[in-house]
């Protein structure tokens, strides 16, 4: 995504013609680049990469934290996982959540950004409002919404009742619980998407719109043929971040529903947490983690791939 120019017509900052003394005369003996990457690589190696490898090793064992001996079971955990309905359910919930939140967040963010594009005192105020939930933690958001939707003390049901509407069982209903969590997920992050897209929109040179208008393009066509193409890198960025964080869904369901009712909002990480830290089956939990890790890798690779293909034209 980074290799695409930000906006059409914007002068590219790469590669001026002429000699590039910074690259050619590299001394062969020592490259200081390795010093630059050392701290991050060391930290990532010790605190992320090595633990991942270790959890992969754990997934091949019947592993309980604290036990001195762990029985090697090969791929048994993965085989069991394959036959585990609750895992498949969690995967389905996670995928549905991620798809819905990503789509909602990006589309709504795009719509709001288009509306608030012009900068005035009131759009600035509205932007601030939309961005505010982003700084609250997911746990706080979850707790607040759980109470807002509470049938006894919640504001939402109280207002609906006053308006003469019978409030539905938001989080207690098996069919509404997941959509409710999805809505809160979108509520939490839409401001971030909006701001990112807004920033990108500000970069589009106005003369492109003027040229399009001269060609007789209506508002929709201008949006379709000028705005959207220019926003592609920003859209890819927000989609990728939303997908990756969506697939790791945990805090929100943990604080709102604990995965209920009857597992209808149980995400993969929630299930992993249940197996690993409530039942202490770390080997099995690690297998869950690894499957999730591979899923996330595959989905992001696919997204990056698709976007690169389109870069070609």
């Amino acid at each position: 995504m980074s290799s695409t120019p930000l906006a059409p017509g914007r002068p590219r900052t790469r590669r001026p013609h002429g000699p590039r003394p910074s690259h050619r005369p590299r001394r062969p003996r020592f490259n200081s680049a390795y010093l630059f990457i050392l701290p991050s690589v060391l930290l990532i190696g010790v605190f992320i990469a090595e633990p991942i490898v270790q959890s992969g090793w754990m997934s091949l064992h019947d592993w309980t934290v604290g036990e001195s001996h762990h029985k090697f079971v090969g791929l048994d955990n993965y085989t069991a996982l394959y036959h585990d309905h609750r895992f498949w359910n969690a995967l389905r919930v996670t995928v549905v959540y991620t798809a819905a939140v990503t789509a909602g967040q990006v589309l709504l963010g795009l719509a709001i950004a288009s509306r608030l594009r012009r900068t005035t005192w009131y759009t600035a105020l509205l932007r601030t409002a939309y961005f505010f939930p982003f700084i609250a933690s997911l746990v706080v958001s979850g707790i607040v919404w759980k109470f807002l939707l509470d049938p006894q003390v919640g504001l939402v049901d109280a207002w609906l009742s006053k308006a003469g509407v019978t409030p539905p069982d938001w989080l207690q209903s098996t069919s509404l619980a997941l959509p409710t969590v999805i809505a809160v997920g979108i509520w939490k992050n839409v401001g971030f998407t909006m701001i990112v897209l807004l920033a990108s929109m500000q970069q589009i040179p106005p003369d492109l719109y003027e040229a399009a208008a001269l060609d007789g393009a209506g508002p929709w066509q201008r949006f379709r043929h000028v705005t959207l193409p220019a926003l592609r890198p920003a859209l890819l960025f927000t989609t990728l971040i939303a997908t990756v964080t969506g697939l790791q869904l945990f805090d929100l369901v943990f604080s709102m529903t604990s995965g209920g009712p009857i597992f209808h909002t149980e995400s993969v990480v929630m299930y992993l947490y249940q197996k690993g830290f409530v039942e202490f089956r770390m080997g099995y939990a690690s297998a869950v983690a690894w499957v999730l890790f591979v899923v996330i890798l595959a989905v992001s690779a696919l997204q990056l791939r698709l976007s690169r293909y389109r870069d070609a034209d």
Partner: peptide, 10 residues
């Protein structure tokens, strides 16, 4: 580099 990092941690 990664192997080195891992070794250090070990």
């Amino acid at each position: 580099a990664l192997a080195a990092a891992t070794t250090v941690s070990l």
